[in-house]
Design a protein around this nucleic acid. Sequence first.
DNA 1: GTCTATAGCCCGATAGAC
DNA 2: GTCTATCGGGCTATAGAC
Lengths: 211, 211
Amino acid sequence: MFIAFDLQKEHSIYGENVTQRIIDPQGKRGMVLRAARKLFVEKGYYAVSIPAIVKASGVSTGAIYSYFSNKEDLARQLYEETLDHFQDLFFARVPQDSNTYGKLRAVAELSFAIAENEPETMRYMLTIRHDEFISDSVPICYSEPFRWIQQIVADGIAKGELKAGDYFLSAVSFTGVIIRAVELRLSGVIKDSLLDVSDELINNAWATIRV
Amino acid sequence: MFIAFDLQKEHSIYGENVTQRIIDPQGKRGMVLRAARKLFVEKGYYAVSIPAIVKASGVSTGAIYSYFSNKEDLARQLYEETLDHFQDLFFARVPQDSNTYGKLRAVAELSFAIAENEPETMRYMLTIRHDEFISDSVPICYSEPFRWIQQIVADGIAKGELKAGDYFLSAVSFTGVIIRAVELRLSGVIKDSLLDVSDELINNAWATIRV
DNA sequence: GTCTATAGCCCGATAGAC
DNA sequence: GTCTATCGGGCTATAGAC
């Protein structure tokens, strides 16, 4: 809850060291990146032409090619900045000193809050096909935050706060509930705000791993 | 388990009324569809050119355009036949007379079995972006089978076999565990066969909704 | 720095031989 | 029915005016 509140007043979630990475909606470069992100999510990288980005962003071809050396470079900068931003939100907000339940609850609440308050960021995170243009083939959402969740779960099992079992499968199960809910919310299948059903979803996710 | 076994000997899963819909690997049309499916999953519809399909399938441009009126028509036939096949597997194999646990367990085992035995089918089901070329905007995996699972869950709650709560969120939670596991298996993140960890995953998924 | 205009390329689709 | 060769179109990226 408190997380959702913070996210709504945009300033407080972006710490000093994070600000520079934000895709600035004011500048032309940011307008291009935002328009491109929306279009890439909607249609996919290859289906989005530079003329389409020109039209959607209001920035001309020439200006775009002054900020980015080519279309792939644009996509790569978008990828890196969105991923960095996403990871900053995670590392900045999930309490290090809490117990296993507190940490995982925070992970889930933050995921829901980002989905509700920055849907384009979350949509991009879940949608983007890594293999479309990025050379390393690690899907975006299996990277840092996901591995971090694995660590929380592994620690929780070791401390006896979670049921014994394969920590990897437990992490998959917990995040499966959360991610599936986010996906269905972003695609409009779930009508209610995730913030309103957060408790029930977190209960369900927690049930997969609790003792 | 028995499901996995059946799937391995390909004949038994394809009933009489299903056979005609199968993408025949022998005929040229089937070779085109199989090659296209693989390429579409790997790179996305727009990134795959007709020349690329010619090369991958060994069928010439002229022959392709004798089977399909254009590239979109090819994609649409592929979509419909793969979806039909997938749904046939579901409706043919999940027991109608079982209790809630038995039905959902069968759904999960069948999902794992398809992922292991027909990875290209499952990959396509999870990967394809509906909005890339299909006019109606319903994501492929939210359609019939998913709605059917919702019904099973709703019935289970009504009969007191599942915990009370929002049936939709319960269905999301159960399928979230299953789908996430399948996704991570298909992308190579999970190394073990899902058939070997089926029991643990089904336990986790079931825990989200049981009384 | 930012614009418009356009070069050069590859794609989808077709034509015509066989 | 199936092949190769090719056309028109839209794309990425650049050139040149301002």
